[in-house]
Design a protein around this nucleic acid. Structure first.
Lengths: 208, 208
DNA sequence: GTATACTCGGAAGCGGAGTTCCGGTTCACG
DNA sequence: CGTGAACCGGAACTCCGCTTCCGAGTATAC
């Protein structure tokens, strides 16, 4: 319904920026980080500028379009997701592969549940999200996590990396719904999912 | 971010309507049914009117606001969901409780996956959806379905009715994402979920 | 200290989607 | 067949949020 278009990247944050510009840029990203998490894509540019203590003009100097700002915010999120995945891999290596896996999934789900923009992006921009996930090294880390758990015999063999974002995405949706209707417990969905991916699998997962 | 407001109900479709009015109303609902399913809430009123072969004025005569139209369409969906649930219950009674349950879940997931508006509504209007589900008798039917499978010992005891919409909702999100990025397979998510709800449960689901 | 280039801010512009309005048309009833 | 009430259609209106523009301000270099 909307033509696909590649929009220009946001102005990079090099060290040659003027000090005030750099400060404002950071304030903008921080404000957007919060507002996008709370209101999703509906968060308004004016509001973001206001919270950052900045005029809209300034906002648009740094991020030519709303989407660019969203990209910046999401890139930050992925950075943290990848970082935490690295820790989980170390834990798995140290001898607790299942706990490392479970812990990471639960943590990631909680992040997803607390960030409406991320949930939306996963659902409506999965293409770009995939690129970001690969670029940030997240995919590689998670793959290791899966391998460890499979070798330990606690994770079913036919689970693949691609199943993870799908699962995390689904949690986001439930969490969003749960925000208005308590009684939908996303933690139960995770628990069921974890039981479902535990070795040995009961049924055979539909192949490609 | 938007004030909650109860909007007036759509004009009822009584037998005292003029024939052309009734015809147009049906055409509108049919058109909306398709367009909402394909484009979600983004579907435009002008477009719906055009497809129904009707002017926007006529559309607004029957449905004072877009939301009223959406309600009408969704009510229809729930009617079918409940109907199919009834069939599943009969199948369960006939002696195939697990297959009845699994079959129904898979069917419902497919419906959810094919209807963007329904997915959106589940995620952003869960309150109203719950009311519709109870009103249409869907909840009662599904509850029976669960009971049958539990008594047969194939479904874990700690699964409750509320877990079903959460699961179906999560499928909707994955399906929406999968629409643009093939490789996200919602059928795998279902299979994993079904393994996770099979008796006996491996872990203990987080209680209320 | 002054020059200058870059940055700031917010009022105004713009476009798109839901909704309203009213003259023309059509159905149903006597 | 005639009449009136209900209905139809779509151009115009309104509202709202993203984006642009430019005069004023400010940090850095010399």
């Amino acid at each position: 319904m909307k033509p696909i278009e590649t929009n220009q990247a946001a102005v990079a944050a090099g060290p040659l920026m003027r000090a005030d510009a750099r400060r404002n840029r950071d304030a903008i990203v921080a404000a957007a980080y919060e507002l996008f998490a709370e209101y999703g894509t509906e968060a308004q540019m004016d509001e973001i500028a206001r919270r950052a203590g900045v005029g809209v003009g300034t906002l648009y100097r740094h991020f030519p379009a709303k989407e660019d700002l969203l990209d910046a915010v999401i890139a930050r999120r992925f950075g943290r997701l990848a970082e935490r995945a690295g820790e989980a891999v170390r834990q798995a290596t140290a001898g607790e592969p299942w706990d490392a896996f479970r812990g990471y999934i639960e943590w990631a789900a909680r992040v997803q549940a607390g960030d409406r923009a991320l949930s939306e992006a996963m659902a409506t921009r999965s293409e770009r999200m995939h690129a970001a996930a690969v670029g940030s090294g997240l995919v590689a880390e998670v793959e290791q996590l899966l391998d460890h758990a499979k070798r330990a015999g606690t994770l079913r063999e036919d689970l693949v990396v691609e199943d993870i974002p799908a699962m995390v995405c689904s949690i986001g949706a439930v969490a969003a719904a749960a925000a208005q209707k308590p009684g939908w417990r996303w933690d139960r969905v995770i628990a069921i999912w974890l039981d479902g991916v535990r070795a040995p699998g009961i049924s055979k997962l539909p192949g490609p």
